[in-house]
Simulated assay, not measured.
Amino acid sequence: MTEDIVFENMRIDDDEVIQEEDLEMKYYLKNKKEFESLAKEMLSGKKVLFITGAGLSISSGISPYRNSKNAIWGSFITTWGTRKKFIEDPQSFYNVFWLRTHEKQEYLDALPNPGHLSITNFVELCNANVITQNVDELHLKAKVPESKLIEIHGRISMYKCITKNCTYEYDETITSIDINDYAIKGSMKGGDLEINPPPCPSCSNPILPQSLLFDEDYNSHSFYRYHEAMDWIEEADIVVFIGTSFSVGITEEVVYQAQTNNKKMYNFNVFKETKVKNMRPIIGPSEITLPLLERQFLYEAQKKIPKRQIWYDNTIKRMVFEAQEEFKEKQALKANSSTGRVRV
Rank of each mutant, 00 (worst) to 15 (best):
I58R: 07
N70A: 05
F122E: 15
W80Q: 11
C126H: 03
Q133T: 06
W73V: 12
G115S: 06
S63H: 12
R155H: 03
P64V: 09
L108Q: 11
T132S: 10
I152M: 05
K85W: 10
A110S: 10
S60Y: 01
L125D: 11
E146W: 12
I77W: 07
F122W: 09
T101A: 06
Y94F: 14
T82V: 12
L108Y: 04
K141F: 02
A71T: 00
S147I: 03
E88I: 04
I131T: 06
T78E: 14
S92F: 12
K85R: 15
N113K: 02
K160T: 00
N129G: 05
G74T: 08
L111E: 09
L99W: 07
K141C: 06
T101R: 13
F76N: 08
H153L: 00
S68Y: 11
G74P: 15
S59L: 08
T79M: 11
L125E: 06
L108M: 11
H139W: 02
I119R: 01
V144C: 06
G74I: 11
H153D: 00
D136F: 01
N165C: 10
Y107D: 08
Q133M: 07
T120A: 15
H139R: 12
I150E: 05
V130C: 00
N113E: 03
S75K: 15
S59V: 15
I150K: 01
W73K: 06
V123M: 04
N95K: 03
I62R: 00
E146P: 11
L125A: 08
I58Q: 10
V96F: 05
R83S: 07
G154T: 05
T163A: 05
Q133L: 03
V135I: 15
V96R: 06
P114D: 04
S63P: 10
S75H: 14
Y65H: 13
F76Q: 08
T101K: 13
F86N: 08
